[in-house]
Amino acid sequence: MIITNDTINLCKARDRAAQKQLYRKMVPYLNVVCRRYLHDDSYISDILQEVFIQIFTKIAQFDPERGAFKNWAIKISVNACLKHNQKHAKENLQELVLPLHEKKVNPYVLQKYSDEDLMNFLRQMPTAYFQVFSLYVIDGFDHKEIAEMLEINDSLSRKRLSRAKAWIEKKTSVSEWAKVSGNRSF
């Protein structure tokens, strides 16, 4: 996915053809990003529409020297999803206190899942942990950027990432698996 400066400049000039070209390149990617952060996927079309409206109306503020266009668009998408979740909040954050590094990770468990199943599995972790985990591991933002997007501080972002990792380790440990599956083991 390559977004050229010419396309961006034409979008700044409100060229509708360039906007459509940008949309077609970005929408498959932002669709995945937004689905990852939305609590309710049924709002995906509304959110994407809002995201692209923001992108096209704020594109004049984009500075290529400060980062890639894709990251800028992801930030807008994530913020839109988080605001939407907050507005339609029916879930609450829960503090899940887990002992860190209690169990060994068995990567084999994760590798056997499809992408959809794996994402469904990850989304079971507390929302705050999942947001940091997804932004850091999948989307590649650093803790400072995550802190700005989630309006938290850097240390809390690191702590949530650590707890997200602990949550995954606990859920994928051999002992947990054996405990539930009974006669199956790795």
């Binding site: 669709n31 994402m119 999948i138």
Partner: peptide
Amino acid sequence: IFDIIKERFKGKQSLEGIQE
């Protein structure tokens, strides 16, 4: 484990669920 997940989802694209 982070690498596994990153490898799965990094740069993933899909038009699922939307009418482009």
